[in-house]
Amino acid sequence: MSASTFFLSWFRLTAAVFLFSFVFVCCAQAQPSSKDKIEALKAAFINKNIDFTAAEAQAFWPLYNDFQAKREALKKELSLSRTSIATINASSEKDVAALLDGDFVLRQKELDLQKDFHKKMLLLLSVKKVALYYKSEEEFKKALLNQLKDK
């Protein structure tokens, strides 16, 4: 066996082992999170309860997805600041005050975001459909809570 043939066989074997390991790791690690599944379920639940026209659906869902992503990012920041407050004893008075202020700023941002989304929904949907959207969100949460209680 020449050196080049040996090198080629070795390279192919290494590539195959690498590929199989990579596939195995990817399959084992990367399942869609149950949070993503719940979000998809919520969207389906809303879609079922509101009789969107084609034009309404086309404008509503990109807006909704954008709103959800922004709200989720804010919620993450909020929970982060709460986690920091749990370690309050280890922090200075000044730092704790800054954390509390930050928490209120984030809550205000979330409220502003919700108001902005509400305004956009009113431009797009009838008031009745907007009310149905809020009701659907509420119903979905209730159903989800019941599901959690049953566990």
């Binding site: 999170s33 149950s34 949070k35 599944k37 719940i38 379920l41 919520k42 989720e72 919620k75 993450k76 929970s79 949460k141 989800l144 809570l145 599901q147 959690l148 566990k151």
Partner: peptide
């Protein structure tokens, strides 16, 4: 959604 865990959905509430 049989595998619902509160940690996954807490942001909703």
């Amino acid at each position: 959604a049989s595998k619902v865990d509160y940690m996954d959905v807490e942001d909703l509430f």
